[in-house]
Design a protein around this nucleic acid. Structure first.
Lengths: 252, 252
DNA sequence: CGTTTGATTGATCCCCCTCAAGCAGGGTGG
DNA sequence: CCACCCTGCTTGAGGGGGATCAATCAAACG
């Protein structure tokens, strides 16, 4: 039974509420947010004279906490402010599939029955909005509507790309694809430093998102390291040969 | 190189336009549409006194036509009226991955870069709307907005379920999952007759959507038939033991 | 009636899984 | 300080699920 993290022990402990200040007040964490302006926040927090700011609650979660759980219908949407998380589904027999990794700036909108849970991969800061307010804003404000649609389209596109990788790629291609997708998304958020980026995933996370076993992930990563394509060290992923990595993981 | 259909020969032949009547006029195909009322159409074609009807163009495609192609940005959205199709992506080396099968009532909204193509699986009737008009209607009309969001949520949920199946299921489970998902969607559209439903997929389509080879699909289908779970005959799929099929393909 | 499409079945091979052991690092408590 | 555990990574040996190659066959088609 691969990739099962420690049994969920913190479901019922709600993450501590940090602040409950309205958006426009001074000292909101958003004022100094490094990814603000690269994501949906930008559209949500625009200050227009005749609109009142949206309700925001900044919250925290510790590594391994599960701030959002499937089956629990939610009237909130979430924006990742700092740290990493992942969205996953669990099967009857305990297997876990990771649908998507969440990085700062990502949006979690469990509309309909999202049917997935979210677990913190590092200590996490995120921001909760009230779904009804966001919906109203989307309808009123054309720019926000467009940003919203773009957000959903991007998410769908990523999901589709992952599905193609799972269906058609072999182990090396799938892992390369995952690395490339993360690299690209971090780049878009300005979180790429040179050719390195933070990489808090354990090999079991890679395994559960690529449909491999962590044993085989280990072997494949070793091969990538030996071949000078990329290497993971100390929670940092260094891309050594981007061209080759692309040739392996782009598929298209 | 599994599952490559005949080389695309009809890309440049635009499907014949059937009619260009506004929705409210008599004799629109929509008046007698069997799936109307079970899908997004219901929300789009609501007649309200002070709104003018949306522009519609009913079109046709023949089996194997590709009415919509990736990379070609489109300002239309499509609704399947009759017949089946599928959305797919092609890789450099010719491999094809089928993301989703489209049945009557399904919506195809290539927002952002859809990055997928659509091919007709049977002779096809579909309806083209103007994206900008639909967008305006969504913003104006709360019911339409909700229907739209529900539509996107359902599509995302299906995609996620498929990704989980590709990542974690073995051959039999994946195929069972596909059959169950189709059954459920056809049921929601009132297209399920007893425990049989039309099944126009070739084994190569099953293969390319489950990440298997058509050879192995054939073996697995034989096993299902021999075990009395379900059987495909004459373009019709008969579910024989739904309980067992669910136990195999539900995963959750 | 030749040709094409699609399904079936057998034989062989390989990618990746499974099981297992070993090791390094980091708590934690004595 | 060391003993002990827990998490996570590595590496080896063996086995299996599905791929690959190939031949046959039925139905549809031109």
């Amino acid at each position: 039974m691969p990739g099962i993290d420690r049994p969920v022990q913190s479901v019922d402990r709600p993450p501590a509420v940090m602040r409950e200040l309205p958006a426009a007040l001074p000292h909101s964490p958003c004022d100094t947010c490094p990814v603000r302006g690269t994501n949906f926040c930008a559209a949500l927090l625009i200050e227009t004279p005749h609109r009142q700011p949206l309700t925001q609650r900044h919250e925290r979660a510790e590594r391994r906490d599960i701030p959002f759980e499937a089956e629990r219908s939610s009237d909130s949407i979430y924006l990742i402010c700092g740290g990493w998380a992942f969205a996953f589904r669990r099967l009857r027999d305990g297997r876990r599939h990771i649908l998507r990794f969440l990085i700062p700036g990502d949006l979690v909108s469990p509309f309909g029955e999202g049917n997935f849970s979210v677990q913190a991969l590092t200590d996490l800061r995120f921001c909760r909005f009230v779904a009804a307010e966001v919906k109203a804003r989307i309808v009123e404000e054309p720019r926000t509507f467009d940003a919203w649609m773009a957000q959903l389209a991007a998410e769908r596109s990523q999901l589709a790309a992952s599905a193609v990788a799972l269906g058609q790629f072999d182990a090396a291609e799938r892992i390369a694809h995952l690395v490339l997708q993360l690299r690209e998304r971090l780049d878009a958020r300005g979180l790429l430093h040179g050719e390195s980026f933070p990489f808090p995933l354990r090999q079991s996370h890679i395994a559960d998102s690529t449909g491999l076993t962590s044993v085989h992930v280990s072997r494949t990563l070793s091969a990538f390291r030996k071949d000078g394509v990329f290497a993971i060290e100390d929670g940092l992923l260094k891309v050594i040969d981007l061209t080759r990595l692309r040739r392996i993981g782009d598929g298209r």
